[in-house]
Computed example of a mutant assay.
Amino acid sequence: MRRFAILLAGTSTLTAACATAQDFERGSRNTDLQPAYEWQFRAPLEDSGIAIETSVVADGLVHPWGIEVLPGDAGYLVTERPGRLRVVAEDGTLGEPISNVPEVLAQDQGGLLDVTLAPDFETSRRIYLTYAKPLGGGESATAAAYATLSEDMTALEGVTEIFVQEPGSTVPKHYGSRVELDDAGHVFITTGEHSSQRTRVYAQDLDKTYGKTIRLTRDGAVPSDNPFVGQDGAVDSIWSWGHRNIQGAMVVDGTLWTIEHGPAGGDELNEIEPGANYGWPVISYGEQYSGGPIGSGEAQREGMEQPVYFWDPVIAPGGMTMYDGDAFPDWQGDVFIGSLAPGGIVRLELQDGRVAAEERLQMDLGRVRDITVDDDGGLLAITDFRNGEIVKLLPANSG
């Protein structure tokens, strides 16, 4: 919590949005837990007034989960949860499934999940994948691997597993599973705690990799400056702990930002500090789906970090990205988040590390699982349906 104390001393407090109309538009809260800081919750809900034109780039994808833009107008690399990795051409043509993808448990929330290109992909051809790895005996775990994508983009070569969550779980939920890279040679992997009342407490155990962010080198080694290296009883790949189910992540100026699912209420945006405990399931701004309290029934506790921002009711966050394109100049530096429920896209304006304003966009898209920026500055969203789509957003009349 030291970060927030510094921010409060150094900048003026943003005015919280408490207008009745805005609250009504966002929906009724699940809890009456008060934010630690007024700027953590319900920032002004604005309409940027930018007219957007949407077009379907491709359809026929089965529960797509992750998307990356390939360089040189080569199209898009997309994962499908049943276990397929495809190249989708810019004209929407679906390539045949790429061979040698790791085996996955395609059950419930499990399957082939995220994909990320290495920063030097154009020369190395390296990609990173996360997935639900079957372990036998009805168990599975979040796993991550790197591989080389062949020049003809039909096969993976040299598949090398770099992380397997421990212990295995019989509950095929809450895998987390974004994978992000920084420019200093590190790979970040997010995990979940597999949802059950019995295992969610593992998010507070440093000898397990449930509910954690993981930091490795690009080849899968543990960096010597990870916060728990050399600590007895702690897994040395852990970067942060106390998370529920992180399905959105991005690296900005070397810092990992995450967005995680709360239960009924309590979705969280966090700026991750190494070694920090983010509280789940001891504290939360949400409640049990049955209506009971989470953990201690509190939202704040000494030694546990507060979120930069939280939602109640939830937006059920998918992937996230910071906009750096040219098509929407007014949105430079804004954060875009895919929403699974109520659906669509959530745009956040950041100011001094806080959320200064929020906007809801294209709510008719339904379940947006991931979002990224295309080479021309358009936003690309993938929809998590049996007949999933890649949808492109550009300013109206831009052509």
Rank of each mutant, 00 (worst) to 15 (best):
G266E: 05
S284R: 01
E302Y: 10
Q288C: 13
G295M: 01
G292V: 11
Q306D: 12
S290P: 00
P293V: 14
V308S: 05
G279T: 14
I294A: 01
N277F: 04
P263R: 12
G303H: 01
P274F: 01
I272F: 07
G286C: 01
W280D: 07
I294S: 05
G292A: 10
A299G: 13
G297M: 10
E298P: 14
L269N: 08
A264K: 14
P313Q: 06
V308M: 07
L269A: 09
I283M: 05
Q306M: 13
P274Q: 08
G292K: 04
I272K: 08
G262C: 02
Q306E: 13
G265S: 07
Q300A: 15
I283K: 05
Y285W: 04
I315K: 08
D267I: 05
G262A: 04
G295I: 01
N270G: 00
M304I: 06
D267P: 07
P313E: 00
P307Q: 05
Y285D: 11
M304E: 10
I294D: 00
E271K: 12
V314A: 11
E298T: 05
G291Y: 03
M304L: 13
G291A: 03
Y278A: 06
S296E: 12
G295K: 05
P293R: 03
I294R: 08
Q300S: 15
P281K: 09
Y285I: 09
G303R: 00
I294C: 05
I294T: 13
Y289L: 10
Q288M: 15
S284D: 10
P274M: 03
G292E: 08
G292T: 13
G286F: 05
G292R: 04
W280M: 02
G286K: 02
W311T: 10
S290R: 09
G292H: 03
W280L: 08
A264E: 14
G291C: 00
P263C: 13
E273W: 06
E302T: 14
I315F: 02
G295E: 04
G303Y: 07
I294P: 04
D267Q: 03
E298H: 14
Y289E: 06
E273F: 05
N270C: 06
W280T: 07
P293M: 03
A264L: 15
R301D: 12
G297A: 07
I315H: 02
W311I: 13
V282W: 12
E273H: 10
A264N: 14
I294Q: 08
E298M: 14
